[in-house]
């Protein structure tokens, strides 16, 4: 369990980052044991935006590090 205030701050920041990333459809993350892919479904039903080709592409955040 982390108790140091700096580390708590770091935990908060990472949690916030996770929440932010939930808004994007897809990202790759890295642990000491390898990479994994997180996928967020849409949080609400949607139709294609009026101008097709916009709005549905999910950016790939944090590509796997070497």
């Amino acid at each position: 369990m982390k108790t140091n205030s700096n580390e708590n701050q770091e935990l908060m920041t990472r949690k916030e980052a996770l929440k932010k990333m939930g808004k994007f459809g897809k990202y790759a993350a890295v642990t000491a044991l390898g990479t994994y892919i997180m996928l967020s479904p849409k949080k609400s039903q949607a139709q294609s935006p009026t101008e097709p080709g916009e709005g549905f592409k999910a950016p790939l955040l944090f590509p796997p590090e070497k």
């Binding site: 939930g22 044991l33 994994y36 892919i37 997180m38 996928l39 967020s40 479904p41 949080k43």
Partner: peptide, 12 residues
């Protein structure tokens, strides 16, 4: 809790 999906190596 987040309704997210993920793909992992079976060990993870």
């Amino acid at each position: 809790n987040s309704n997210q999906y993920s793909i992992f190596d079976p060990f993870l």
